[in-house]
Design a protein around this nucleic acid. Structure first.
Lengths: 127, 127, 127, 127
DNA sequence: GTGGTCTAGACCACG
DNA sequence: GTGGTCTAGACCACG
């Protein structure tokens, strides 16, 4: 469910954050579900507990999860998360589009590349 | 012409690399143009010569510029640079599209966001 | 294991690069072995950490080693390295042969010099 | 007759030295022939006079040429030059062979690569 | 502790 | 003056 890439430039704690946020957004982790404990998840993923801790702390700061002292971490109910996440990914998308434009790629080619990708992913979903 | 952001996660030398690559691609820096010397650019940007040096060396490794010992650095003529740059930016674009898709944003909204951005940048160009 | 020559025209970082690549190729450094840390190797060799860093970074770029952030550097598993290294050394060999030829050394003498060297090294191996 | 490569790691003055030594060895520049003046050769090659000067000085030190004050530079008659040059190129050849051996290339492959190169160059000469 | 980045400043070869 | 290498040493993120 959670796969980390040691080679990536993205720090592990951020990969973990992103992946959990994704699992929340797609509903795989429903509201109020309890997350695995810091130590158990760290053991399972083969990473340092500090790393999991950092991911959890940031997710709590972003209100994706909440902590109950002595109990553990749980998925938030906050409906705004989805909105914010969407806004952020769309921002990254438009930044990528701007960069293509600056690189001199014609508008038509940009649109086509996006359409192709969207179509391909749609098909993958149906599989 | 070259603006650096000390706050960015991107190291300064990489910002510099990207910016010069962009100026080359857009033709602002034409083939065989001499770049400012390591020391003068460092002074101008308020960074250490080593930082500029690192950017120049990576650009040379990527064949964006070439060095003539004791003379200076010059813009490459290599026509493949443009092609490679386009491929890379398009790769980043499709990655961004995939991320939007994974975040659950509908295909129609992705297409619209891209179209809007493309249109807006087209207008900016005409200004 | 690693000996550097301050007098050489070859920069220290390049001597280090070559020597490590050799230790990898000959299997003395096996895949996934951890390299000494930048700082410890620098201390051991009596050079600046930056110099070791530069060697390591170039080796990573050439996929001879890989870096795990915060952990250290490790020998790559990439099997293509061997092939590439062989190609490069053979290229240097044929360049040397061409130079002998241009210097007017007869073909027979070139062949003999090569055979003698090969034989001598074969014997050294058996020692 | 003399072609320089700005991109090469070899300094220009050394390329020039090597090329002139080669022309002497192959008899294209016969004993006592006058070399072009520092300034005229510099102009012709599009390099700094200091560079030609440096090449000439080193060639004189190596007794490949001799200087007559106020007259110019001339090719030496010294017959030992050829011998030394041959020894040096053969040294570089055996160094290259050793490196191939260290890279684990089998003796047979080394011999074959050398033979092929020698044969190919022999044919080029007949052309 | 580990690598990555950066500054400050030196010395060198080349031109 | 130009780039290339190197030292000394700092600070940072990550683990």
């Amino acid at each position: 469910m959670i796969i980390l890439d040691n080679q990536s430039r993205l720090p592990i704690y951020e990969q973990l954050k992103n992946r959990i946020a994704e699992l929340v957004l797609t509903g795989v982790y429903p509201p109020d579900m309890q997350l695995p404990s810091v130590r158990s998840l760290a053991r399972e993923l083969g990473v340092n507990p500090n790393t999991v801790q950092k991911a959890y702390q940031e997710l709590e700061r972003e209100q994706v999860i909440y902590t109950v002292g002595g109990k553990g971490c749980f998925i938030s109910t906050n409906p705004l998360i989805r909105e914010r996440r969407c806004r952020e990914t769309l921002d990254r998308l438009t930044a990528a589009v701007r960069e293509c434009h600056r690189a001199g790629i014609p508008a038509e080619e940009i649109r086509r590349a996006v359409s192709d990708t969207v179509d391909r992913m749609g098909e993958e979903d149906e599989t």
